[in-house]
Design a protein around this nucleic acid. Sequence first.
DNA 1: CTATGTCAAGCTGGC
DNA 2: GCCAGCTTGACATAG
Length: 568
Amino acid sequence: MVAKRARKIHSVSSDAAVTAPRSSALVQEESVALRSTRGVELEVGLQRRASTRIRSKIEAAEAAAAAAVDSGLETPLTEPDEAVSPPKKRRRKTKKSEPVVYDIPTYEPKTTTYKGRLGYACLNTILREIKPNPIFCSRTCRIDTILKNGLDFAKDLGVQNVKDLKKLIQWNEENKIRFMRISSELFPFASHAKYGYSLDYAAAELKAAGDLANSLGHRLTLHPGQFTQLASTKEDVVTASVRELKYHCSILRHMGMGEDSVIIIHMGGMYGDKTAALKRFKENYRTKITDEVRARLVLENDEMCYNADDLLPVCEELNIPIVFDHHHNWIFPSTQPIPELLSRINAIWHHKGIRPKQHLSSPRPGAVTLMERRAHAGRCKDLPDELQLEGVGWRWLPSANANGTRNEDDKEWFDLMIEAKDKEQAVFQLYRTYGLEEVIWENLRPEKVDAPIREEKETKGSRITRSKQKGEDIETVVTTELPDEDPATAVETIDPQPSTTEGSKATSTRKNRKKMANGKHRAAEPRLIVEDDDEVLQKVTAESLDNIEIKRDRKGKKKFLDTAALQV
DNA sequence: CTATGTCAAGCTGGC
DNA sequence: GCCAGCTTGACATAG
């Protein structure tokens, strides 16, 4: 039980050249300390407070000198603005801003001997939130937009995505993450039957990103979507799937990635007859895909249709490695114990000369039904114990001396992809929990609280108190010593997360909205009583505060929530 | 700037 | 029949 949170205060200027005012002497002191120990390059994740003016200049510089920006390691994520002649611009008076405040909890320390690479999928939450020019690799568009603006519009998005991919790889290196999944949306519509296009036009950018990854020894993988159904009964679905796989292969080919850069798919649907589906898969695998695709294609056990037992025979027959997904195996388990299972699975990887990888994720807290258990939690609290075992999480390299002199250096550790909503933050949490790598404190964020399913009100220790004003190039992260439970802060905390409340304006995803509407088996949704009515508030608080939670939305409007349903 | 509805594609399970 | 969940949320537009 972790009763206290670490005390940590720091403040970061978004531009090394700018000395922003500090909110306090203490903040300044600690900031200097952090800076001197970690270096300026660690500021990378904190460009979010850069002013619009600076950003515009950066953009202009990038546009003007796009071709010059190519040397991966030397390229800062933000161009130095000294290099840019300031565009004519009215000076915007910026408002004073209060610091952003985060509570970064500590975690109960755990130990493991596992030393494999941990990775995350597709999106970096820190870089994605940089404003006004976020760094991410899944820009896309609509077919309507292609029709309106031309295909080059979509292709330009692809170039931007790849350029950002390089920045992500660089960021990962600085944050000791050397394993990542590339978003399949890197090139919008590239695999589309009608609007698809070759990636040759982006060869230079792809090669630059690939060169960087290879020079740093990073592993990059791909995971095409559920639409990839090689066992489908429909010819056109299979055709589209083959096209999809070729597109993914083309990315890796242009990047020059080695054999460890695999393409992961699921077996897919059962179509009412699993045996027949498996037969179709084998046939299509043998006859409809290229050698290049076969060299990279691997299968993952899923939680609904094909567990590891279902996949092993066909995979052993066709020499297709299996990405073992711990979460899926928990929902739809193999009959074999994990060590035995993984020894068989890893044999296929080794036979094919590829380093094994596994997937790890956690179910949302309180999940009971199958569908609930499928949903991913924000983070993973633990590493599976089995990863410490030879044959599961590592092996002796074939080159190792078997006469008793082999040591740690002769071990090959397998990679582990963390599939969690909090992305790189989930990796950092495991780094911290197990002491696997040093993390950069400025790049830590509090856990995004999952909407509780059947459990009590809130995940503890993840409250964010955020106060922020615009225009000032400063961010402050403050973690204060707080007891685990702090009832005072449960009330009137500005909620940075979508409130799971009917009528909330803060919820922006369709999924969440639907979740809210579908309250039948989600008893843990607080009920909105009334918005912004002081009279009602007085009445309510006079009676009892026990089941009433007061929240404010972004505009400061009060909402009174009946949380009685959560207490069950 | 923010909230909302929609978006290329497939399949299964739950209601 | 509709929705949620899965590999990945982002785009487009109204207010």
